[in-house]
């Protein structure tokens, strides 16, 4: 089992939201999420807001620091990671350039980029802004965030590689925030050369 290096909570397989009662066994929900009925909306607490922001920032930092092996740990076991263009999304077209339907597929992508794929060496720098929790239902929150990714090639050239937004569904499992869904909608229709490191 993998360990989330940025979280104080170990990933322990799939925890369904209904059983997410915290690791202290007290029955109290970590993160003071009101045990609302499914479908009911509520205002996120300050603590939840901080968890959500920390997850988003830590994910970006893990990528920028080239700690890609930890990237899958930010997702739930059934977590979806997709990268699609705004062009396709606006036309209702389902194709995504990256289409990981669970954490296993995300792990496979990272293994592939480390061991199989060939590309000019590069890194990213993420700039994250406008994190907005749009809605909260029980332990899950819909969050939209703007990003800008600068790509730094090994030869020293820096370019704006991608701008866009994250459309996330973030769940609190055992007190730890993770992505159940992360849809990266990039603004440009085109990808420069190739997309290998997750956005």
């Amino acid at each position: 089992m993998t360990t989330n290096p940025d979280s104080d909570v170990k990933t322990q397989g799939t925890v369904s939201p209904s059983k997410a009662t915290g690791r202290h066994g007290s029955g109290a929900l970590i993160g003071s999420i009101a045990p609302s009925a499914p479908g009911a909306h509520s205002e996120p607490s300050e603590a939840d807001r901080r968890r959500v922001e920390a997850l988003i920032h830590r994910t970006a930092r893990a990528i920028d620091d080239d700690r890609l092996e930890s990237f899958p740990d930010f997702f739930t076991e059934d977590g979806i990671y997709q990268v699609a263009s705004r062009f396709n999304v606006e036309r209702g077209l389902p194709m995504a350039q990256i289409n990981c339907r669970n954490r296993g597929m995300i792990i496979d992508r990272i293994a592939s980029l480390r061991h199989a794929n060939i590309y000019g060496k590069h890194r990213y720098r993420h700039l994250i802004s406008s994190i907005e929790i749009e809605s909260q239902t029980g332990t899950s929150m819909r969050v939209r965030t703007s990003y800008l990714v600068i790509r730094i090639m090994d030869d020293g050239t820096s370019t704006i590689f991608s701008s866009g937004e994250y459309q996330d569904m973030i769940v609190l499992e055992s007190g730890a925030a993770r992505f159940r869904e992360r849809r990266v909608i990039f603004d440009s229709k085109s990808i420069d050369t190739l997309l290998v490191i997750p956005l």
Binding site: P94, M95, A96, Q97, N99, N117, Y119, L194, L195, V196
Partner: peptide, 28 residues
């Protein structure tokens, strides 16, 4: 079948697990 096709697009195109090298090698 549509879901399978969408999953297999992971292998082709600009982020293709199988094909992304083509963009890189052209640049090389």
């Amino acid at each position: 079948m549509q879901a399978t096709r969408l999953a297999h697009i992971n292998a082709t195109g600009s982020a293709g697990l199988v094909s992304m090298e083509d963009g890189a090698v052209c640049e090389f």
